[in-house]
């Protein structure tokens, strides 16, 4: 009956979604290579209101609230943080490390905090979640004999131990449209039709001994949080008002 109630409800839900997005950003403020998202809104369908006298007016329209139109991810680079650990890598430019999960799916990540996995087949370079880091050819990186603490990386992404010849080159991929990538959790992204296919970078600019911090801006998120909270309570006020008006209509008969 009363459109205002449903309109206010849509606003409460939309603001709730935005609060969820902000909370997720804040929760990941210390996640290596995390990229912040934001929720965008759009107004919804408009219906024409009936004007009780002629002529009817097509511009006499009534909106029905708000929807989350998209969550947009910012791919701005985070600050490189020095760790001094030989297995920590940081991409200083656009690009992603190519990794492979247990289902042999290719994933892409900005998180370069790698580890060594000792398996039957040898020693492999893996992510913190145990996903294999892939080289330029798309195969797993086997670490040769030698002391891992002597692992060296040149800026082009070639790995070597000590003064020996490079044994592998990190596969650093870039996409035409990072915004089209789909988050797969565990700091990884999956390529989609919208992102375009992965293209290997020739000069990726990788830094050893650094990690990319999260690009969440705390002050911005808190500002958004306050705004969202206010918008939420305004919508809740509108909902209460609509409810009170309903009550008034229901109590029209005095006896």
């Amino acid at each position: 009956m009363m459109q205002g109630m449903f309109t206010a409800k849509s606003a409460v839900i939309a603001q709730q979604r935005r609060l969820d997005t902000i909370a997720n950003n804040l929760a990941n403020i210390n996640t290596t290579g995390f990229k912040a998202s934001r929720a965008d809104f759009k107004d919804t369908l408009y219906t024409t209101m009936h004007r009780p006298v002629e002529p009817q007016n097509a511009s006499l329209i009534l909106g029905s609230g708000v929807l989350v139109s998209a969550t947009v991810r910012s791919f701005l680079a985070g600050t490189p943080i020095q760790t001094g650990i030989g297995l920590d890598f940081c991409l200083t430019q656009d690009g992603f490390f190519t990794v492979m999960n247990g289902q042999s799916e290719k994933l892409y990540t900005r998180d370069g905090s790698f580890a060594v996995s000792n398996e039957d087949g040898g020693r492999f370079l893996v992510t913190a979640d145990g996903f294999y880091v892939l080289d330029k050819a798309g195969s797993r990186i086997t670490l040769p004999e030698g002391d891992i603490s002597n692992l060296k990386l040149d800026t082009a992404g070639s790995l070597s131990i000590g003064s020996e010849e490079p044994f592998a080159t990190l596969g650093i991929a870039a996409f035409k449209n990072n915004g089209g990538l789909m988050a797969a959790g565990r700091n990884c992204f999956i390529e989609t039709e919208a992102s375009g296919s992965a293209e290997l970078l020739e000069e990726p600019n990788v830094q050893q001994g650094f990690l990319e911090s999260s690009n969440v801006d705390l002050s911005e998120e808190i500002t958004k949080l306050i705004r969202s909270q206010r918008a939420f309570s305004f919508a809740a006020t509108a909902l209460t008002t609509a409810d009170e008006m309903h009550a008034m209509a229901n109590n029209m008969r005095s006896s």
Binding site: A14, D43, A238
Partner: peptide, 24 residues
């Protein structure tokens, strides 16, 4: 009069709902 006020509330609520919609 009540009907008009109800419509007004509907329109105002839509403005409030879109207080964070870009370009609204």
């Amino acid at each position: 009069h009540m009907l008009v006020q109800r419509r007004k509330v509907d329109v105002i609520t839509n403005n409030i709902a879109n207080m964070d919609t870009a370009g609204y």
